[in-house]
Computed example of a mutant assay.
Amino acid sequence: MRGLKSATVGLFASAALVLALPGAAQAAPVEFFYYTTAQGAQVLRSPETDQCYHLSQRLQYGSEVLNKTDSTARLFQGTGCLGEPVLIVEPGEVSTDLKLHGAQSVEFVPAT
């Protein structure tokens, strides 16, 4: 399992590096990445602010998220982004927090 997690961190680090390279003719894509052991890396492209997105699979221990948006990502246990968020991921942050376990939806709000 340790090798799988290392490969995942490498995947997210590579994605962050590519998105951060200067000199690109176009603006870097605005994306939210999440990784599950069952489905691998998934991406939400250009998520809208104040919208709730259902994740394709419930996040488990060992899941990771990378927030490459300019919004704060709030992750929730159930679908529909209801109740209190279990985890907040600021723009540019990577999280492997154990609180990700069970998250099924994400909402993007303006960063403060």
Score class of each variant (00 low, 15 high):
110 P>A: 05
48 E>V: 09
95 S>L: 08
31 E>A: 09
17 L>W: 09
66 L>A: 15
79 T>N: 14
46 S>A: 15
71 S>K: 04
84 E>K: 03
29 P>N: 12
93 E>L: 13
97 D>K: 07
12 F>M: 02
24 A>G: 15
98 L>Q: 09
39 Q>G: 06
59 L>M: 15
23 G>Q: 10
7 A>S: 13
97 D>F: 06
78 G>E: 11
42 Q>K: 11
73 A>N: 03
108 F>K: 00
17 L>F: 13
110 P>K: 00
60 Q>A: 14
99 K>E: 13
45 R>T: 10
6 S>I: 15
108 F>R: 01
101 H>A: 14
83 G>C: 04
66 L>I: 11
68 K>W: 08
2 R>S: 13
33 F>T: 03
24 A>L: 13
45 R>S: 14
11 L>S: 10
101 H>Q: 12
95 S>G: 09
108 F>L: 01
93 E>G: 03
64 E>C: 12
111 A>L: 01
26 Q>I: 07
50 D>E: 15
72 T>A: 03
48 E>P: 00
25 A>F: 08
71 S>A: 11
67 N>T: 04
111 A>Q: 02
79 T>L: 14
103 A>K: 14
2 R>N: 12
59 L>P: 08
69 T>M: 06
35 Y>A: 09
88 I>W: 02
7 A>D: 09
64 E>H: 14
24 A>Y: 10
